[in-house]
Amino acid sequence: MSQVQYPSVLLENAVNEFARLPGIGRKTAMRLALFVLREKQEDVQRFAAALTTLREEIHYCEQCFNLSDASVCSICANARRDHTLVCVVETVRDVMAIENTQQYNGVYHVLGGVISPMDGIGPDDLTIQPLVDKVNSGAVKEVVFALSATMEGDTTNFFIYRKIAEAPVKVTTIARGVAVGDELEYADEITLGRSLVNRQPFDQAM
């Protein structure tokens, strides 16, 4: 593909930019660029403006590091939510996933990833220190870990735990087990085994 002759340098530039997006190869980039050419001018301008404003005007919530339009996000600004309950997640996408459950009324803390030396991510690249400060200030009663069940996720949990173990705070982690609506025989052995080890009293499971 690198030898492809483009009829226009402008087109080639646009293709190069599209191809930088995750999951977009050069052929798809070409299709997208040609699509843009067929669009009305004002539609394209609106599209471009949405991208530049996104990048220029987005804020990270100064309390939880969630994406936000203001300096404090709508979740942290909501007085009806329980600010003593903090759920620790990797990314903004996890916040959205948990919000969609409508089961959680606490606030969040977005780490921005997990510790992974192979990806060049150390504790200082994450928002661990602000979390530790928040806990040490005494404003938090419970911290809920909701990170991936990988070696990296567990390491990050453990790293944070050691930093806040002395503080008077309850530390919990989300339960792992059989998915709701799943047939037992189709659950993988690891998950099923873990569900058995961490079984719970029947009257609390309803």
Partner: peptide
């Protein structure tokens, strides 16, 4: 400071 965590796991 990170080694203790990896070592333990």
């Amino acid at each position: 400071g990170q080694f203790e965590v990896w070592d333990s796991l």
